[in-house]
Nucleic acid binder design. Structure first.
Length: 489
RNA sequence: GGGUCGUUAGCUCAGUCGGCAGAGCACCGGCCUUUUAAGCCGGGUGUCGCAGGUUCGAUUCCUGCACGACCCA
């Protein structure tokens, strides 16, 4: 039947129900059990057991198996599926006829009836009453293969969630991971805070922002690319352990690992350095893995991942030297010549430096994909790290790490720069890059500098890409699987 | 930005070396009180992604475009 006829058929049933005095969209339904609760309440019954217990359930009708004067049906709620038995005997002939004639797969129903088990031992509710709670006017995807088309799945997320249990489970696991993060940090004495999403100067990361406009004050504002600078100002204010879990916005491409709005955890701890950030990172991710996967040996897309500590620590420069076969300590011009000689492509916009961008490019193209088990990549070039403190004994580097798992960047952290004079110099160096055409370069933020001048304690700071971490922990191939409503063009 | 593959019924997918468009599920009608991808009988519901081109004839071949997946930059 064509789609228009399928819709028309359901609308006709709706009309018939209304004509018979049935309200197809009532206000509520008192249920005694969710599906999972029912299973817990009636464990281990033998086949052919009549319990005499009357329960009420509500959910979506997902299957009907008709056998004349009786039918079995499946009712799905958030916790699972329960089989329902409907018969002329149990409901009365008119109510049973109404069920067959006017209700459809997809309708949301309330059921009251007796708990029993069938001859195969399946827990089932023998319906004495069926209440329509919401008529469904659209056909559902196929019961066996479900909804597979990824575009439809992402564009019609509600339909996907009805049809695919794995989609529901992914969101539940995501919630568990977020809850575990909060519990872990709260347990360590961190204070959860919320900082501005609308910012006059987008700071704290190297990225292009979304711009918006405040009409009353007639001024452009930016959706934050990171909460970092505000969180550090709270450190200045005397909050010693703070974190924020929230949405960041970057005006960049969409891919299996990038969504323009994404969820980040940022945490700052006074009196720590990046060694402390590594400990925190290990402990936090370990707790999440244990909560959601029950262990530290996972599988990601068919390949084993071992999250057992201690995690590998490797110098960025050594990794890049190994990955490129080049001496990356030599000056930019010589390094570029050597890369050319070896046939390693260097994008034109990076050839004039800063050198750190070339190193970063080599990390992304020649090293990153090999970092499968958790690896802390240590000590980044200063010229691409304007908010991090210099490395002790290596003034051209900073105390910064990125954490890689399954070949993707999961976290970024540093010993936070708290010298206001040096911070201003770093901002000015970024400003020069901006003048030279680098739209991602960071901007001078005078409000932040003023607060730094009040004195910020030395601190460890870390940012974790929550969506990507969830991908790894729930074995999702695309960031879209772990977002409720991924952006599609 | 480039490459490869894909887009056919509500869903999952076949198929046409260019000649009336197919299946299963869903749906509609009938039978059926222990089914669970229930079963049995009957019914095919379509702008073959969009726009051009070639051709007597295009869903099929060609070109462009849109959208998607994967890979590369």
């Amino acid at each position: 039947m064509a789609e228009a006829d399928l819709l028309a058929s359901r609308r006709e049933k709706l009309q018939r129900l209304r004509a018979a005095g049935v309200e197809p969209y009532p206000y509520g339904f008192a249920r005694t059990h969710a599906a999972a609760e029912l299973r817990r309440s009636f464990p281990d019954l033998s086949p052919h057991t009549r319990t005499g217990a009357v329960v009420s359930l509500a959910g979506r009708l997902t299957a009907i198996r008709r056998m004349g004067k009786a039918s079995f049906a499946d009712l799905l709620d958030q916790t699972g599926r329960v089989q329902i038995f409907l018969s002329a005997d149990g409901l009365g002939a008119p109510a049973y006829a109404n069920f067959l004639e006017n209700l459809d797969i997809g309708d949301i129903l309330g059921i009251r009836g007796e708990v029993f088990t069938t001859k195969t031992g399946e827990l089932t509710v023998d319906a004495r009453e069926v209440v329509l709670l919401a008529k469904s006017l659209r056909p559902l995807p196929e019961k066996w293969h479900g909804l597979k088309d990824v575009e439809t799945r992402y564009r019609q997320r509600a339909l996907d969630l009805i049809a695919n249990e794995s989609s529901r489970r992914a969101l539940e696991k995501r919630a568990l991971i977020l809850r575990t993060m909060r519990n872990y940090l709260d347990g360590q004495g961190y204070l959860e805070v919320e900082t501005p999403i609308l910012q006059p100067i987008p700071g704290g990361a190297t990225a292009r922002p979304f711009v918006t406009h405040h009409n009353v004050v007639d001024r452009d504002l930016y959706l934050r690319i990171a909460p970092e600078l505000y969180l550090k100002r709270l450190l200045v204010g005397g909050l010693e352990k703070v974190y924020e879990i929230g949405r960041n916005f970057r005006n960049e491409g969409i891919s299996s690992e990038h969504n323009p709005e994404f969820t980040a955890l940022e945490a700052y701890e006074a009196y720590g350095d990046y060694e402390r950030a590594m400990e925190l990172c290990e402990g936090l991710i370990e707790a999440c893995a244990l909560a959601v996967a029950g262990g530290l040996r996972l599988e990601y897309q068919g390949r084993a991942v071992n999250l057992a500590r201690p995690w590998r620590r490797a110098s960025l420069l050594e990794l890049v030297a190994e990955g490129s076969g080049c001496d990356v300590e030599k000056p930019l011009a010589e390094l570029v010549r050597e890369l050319d000689r070896r046939g390693i492509p260097v994008p034109d916009h990076l050839r004039q430096g800063p050198k750190g961008k070339v190193i970063e490019h080599l990390l992304e193209t020649r090293v990153q994909e090999k970092l499968w088990d958790p690896t802390f990549v240590l000590d980044f070039p200063l010229d691409i790290s304007p908010l991090a403190k210099r490395k002790r004994g290596r003034p051209d580097l900073v105390e910064r790490f990125e954490l890689y798992i399954t070949g993707r960047e999961i976290a970024n952290a540093f010993s936070e720069l708290n010298d206001p004079h040096e911070q201003r110099e770093r901002f000015l160096a970024q400003e020069e890059l901006r003048q030279a055409g680098d739209e991602e370069a960071q901007r001078v933020d005078e409000d932040f500098l003023r607060d730094l001048e009040l004195g910020m304690p030395p601190a460890a700071g870390i940012g974790i890409g929550v969506d990507r971490l969830v991908m790894v922990l729930v074995d999702a191939p695309s960031i879209r699987e772990v977002l409720t409503f991924p952006l599609l063009r």
